[in-house]
Design a protein around this nucleic acid. Sequence first.
DNA 1: GCCTGGCACTCCGACACCGTGAGTGCCAGC
DNA 2: GCTGGCACTCACGGTGTCGGAGTGCCAGGC
Lengths: 338, 338
Amino acid sequence: MLSERRLEVLRAIVQDYVGTEEPVGSKALTERHRLGVSPATVRNDMAVLEEEGYIAQPHTSAGRIPTDKGYRLFVDKLAGVKPLSSPERRAIQNFLVGAVDLDDVVGRTVRLLAQLTRQVAVVQYPSLTRSTVRHVELLSLAPARLMLVLITDTGRVEQRMVDCPAPIGETAVADLRARLNSRVAGRRFADVPPLVQDLPDSFDAEDRGTVSMVLATLLETLVEETEERLMIGGTANLTRFGHDFPLTIRPVLEALEEQVVLLKLLGEATDSAMTVRIGHENAHEGLNSTSVVAVGYGSGEEAVAKLGVVGPTRMDYPGTMGAVRAVARYVGQILAES
Amino acid sequence: MLSERRLEVLRAIVQDYVGTEEPVGSKALTERHRLGVSPATVRNDMAVLEEEGYIAQPHTSAGRIPTDKGYRLFVDKLAGVKPLSSPERRAIQNFLVGAVDLDDVVGRTVRLLAQLTRQVAVVQYPSLTRSTVRHVELLSLAPARLMLVLITDTGRVEQRMVDCPAPIGETAVADLRARLNSRVAGRRFADVPPLVQDLPDSFDAEDRGTVSMVLATLLETLVEETEERLMIGGTANLTRFGHDFPLTIRPVLEALEEQVVLLKLLGEATDSAMTVRIGHENAHEGLNSTSVVAVGYGSGEEAVAKLGVVGPTRMDYPGTMGAVRAVARYVGQILAES
DNA sequence: GCCTGGCACTCCGACACCGTGAGTGCCAGC
DNA sequence: GCTGGCACTCACGGTGTCGGAGTGCCAGGC
């Protein structure tokens, strides 16, 4: 176990490095951080920290920079979550108020988060799986063509075409619409399948095929939408990275275009707690020199989706975590109200 | 007017520079392009071309590179649109077939275009203004709360909440729904306003406020959606730019995040013809060293939205234009079918 | 036993210098 | 009007030097 002072040295190194983006040496450290000991002592501590793998030197006779392991220790033990200033809080509220629909909420959130953290923001659309059904609408567009519209409590709307095996009458459509709604309205998506299973039986033989098909489409929408959509923003912030970065930025941009990768990243965030994945902790190779800070958000107690930011491992963790948490909370509120 | 050979020299310069990304000199030109004249002659021609502002030298004793004006001449007079190879055509079709909904079509298009051109692709969602209404749905969620759902012929669905000034009965809602649909279904969006103007008059006094509000919301949706949504992709391709590019890439990424800017860029494309905006021809400052190739696409004869790519001025214009045109055509087909 | 000041050493980064080669403009001749 | 020749220019890459920041180690002191 590292002594108190050595931890303090690590903290100082992380803070300075995050601020200056340059390897930090023993002398500079003692000057900027009243540690109460001399540079020589700090050097000894640094040697130990390096031995243990918390810091490294880019080359001999350079200062030290934190390793992924060092950042990990910093995040876990040394740094709290920095609460936002009240002007910042007010800014968040002002920014989110007045959103007109779900796209707008998500769009504003992305911009807000990117702006606050000066990093790349990723926001997942509220998931259908955990949402509840507000309404199911069924429209006949042609004798043998229906449109199924699904409205969720998070304000999301999904539509699907249904090509019927046989023409179906208006009354049967109205009937199906009414029955569907009485059974599934207000239910969670996950609970829907068993509730509608026996519906075809109560219809005339000629319509049964169509009803089954509508149900199949409905359930399919559920499943398909589990591969969530998401929105990203603030990619221009990537250019604030090191000056070395053509090599750095490329794979990150590529990763950001792969929804699957991003969803996986966010997906690892457990419901309520904030997740921080540092450098190589990210499975995806292109993100080896970036960290991901993610957290779930939702309209109720339960998280319905995730949001987070992607930035260099050399980031201001307390500040970023504070911003991410705050934004998640406010978005939750907004969603609950609408 | 420039002589035939001088134009030929300009063409050769553009082609070589696009290929090599390096200033091209007189000797290299004669070697690679059987112009039938000696380097010295080419030098004279180059001097003239430079005089006229079609090419420039980054510094004395370097080769020449085309100016924006040079590219403009190249695009207008010297280069055609390069048709795609048939494998490419087949690839496009395969790529677009099987899209499940509008989001999917747009998403696939963006990826396809980015891949074909190896540049940043921008695709605008089909516009509502020129689309027609397929169906309007009205649901009462609470006694004084309605949801308005609008379905267009391009498969787009928009929903809005309506908070009513007074509770409204189910029959009145059904009535309104029916009347709305009989009046506007199949109509173009632009034609809707006069068609619904007098609707409130035919309702009881107590419901009139609500009806007006629903109509207002409907019309508002029209207007709001005129600020279109769009999707971009292939930003990772920006890293293929010059090596100088931290300065180059930053403003471009920033511009790409501003929907307004992008919409303006695409907006300049007239309906059917392809637009090429080169370098400083783009109003936005950050895009001064990029070119935009855009074209309208649509399900019928008329364009309902635009798509295009953003790349360095030093791009393969014939190839890019070919790809953009081809993709626009195929997307149009896909939309017409669905 | 741990902290400290001192000292010799290392190595990056900036700067200057220089030779090379590609490219140019100009000119005289065909 | 095209061509070959010639002198000139200038970016680029390699080398050399130098200063400074930083290190490791050691002997001495609290």
